[in-house]
Design a protein around this nucleic acid. Sequence first.
DNA 1: GCACATTATGTAGATTGGCTACATGAAGCC
DNA 2: GGCTTCATGTAGCCAATCTACATAATGTGC
Lengths: 110, 110
Amino acid sequence: MKPDAVRGHLDALILATLEKGALHGYAVMQALRESSGGALELPTGSLYPALRRLERAGYVRSEWRMVGGRRRRTYELTAAGRRALDTERSEWRDFAAVVEGVLRPGTASS
Amino acid sequence: MKPDAVRGHLDALILATLEKGALHGYAVMQALRESSGGALELPTGSLYPALRRLERAGYVRSEWRMVGGRRRRTYELTAAGRRALDTERSEWRDFAAVVEGVLRPGTASS
DNA sequence: GCACATTATGTAGATTGGCTACATGAAGCC
DNA sequence: GGCTTCATGTAGCCAATCTACATAATGTGC
């Protein structure tokens, strides 16, 4: 998968990952890798800034915790985040349908 | 549809549009608008640079024509362009499957 | 003949979001 | 003691799309 393909859809992926419950950044990375069957290997330089962006936007809320001397910042969806996820889902469906329609071969008279 | 959503997939859309036959830039715009049911309104500042990029990459070949005193640059897929389109199609399928899988709700135990 | 929409091509510059590469540090394991 | 994994983050780069602008001919309505 080309690196930039996810562009514009990463927020949706992260929000969906957090839908099931609060997670810290590293765990989001792992969850995304797993739920994508290994296809999504988010570098930390993509993930952490994205999470902060989502927080600035009010879609997630974060909280520091110390677990065994290790600091963890756990992220949790806000109500606005849930609404944003709904929007992202329907936008994805629209977008996918459009691309699918254009890409589908054999629509021409040929 | 948010303006940047197409990011990373525009090449595929343009190549697919040219698959049915050579078109000039403006006609590509119209064809894309039509085949997307009006969802894709490509600004010229996206389309023309994209076409030149595809040409530099060797995926399309262009030719000037004068039609009724009006200059037209028609673009045509090359063999490499057809191969690229195949690749784009399969990459799209992979990508869409991944996003679909992550976005699908209710995969959790919840 | 004049104004305005449409057809047609293009560039300059801003934006933006994901990437690479780097930096830090603790815990776990051998 | 050394290596891997867990964990968080920043600085700066880059590419692709967008906005806004510039140009010019044809078609249409009056």
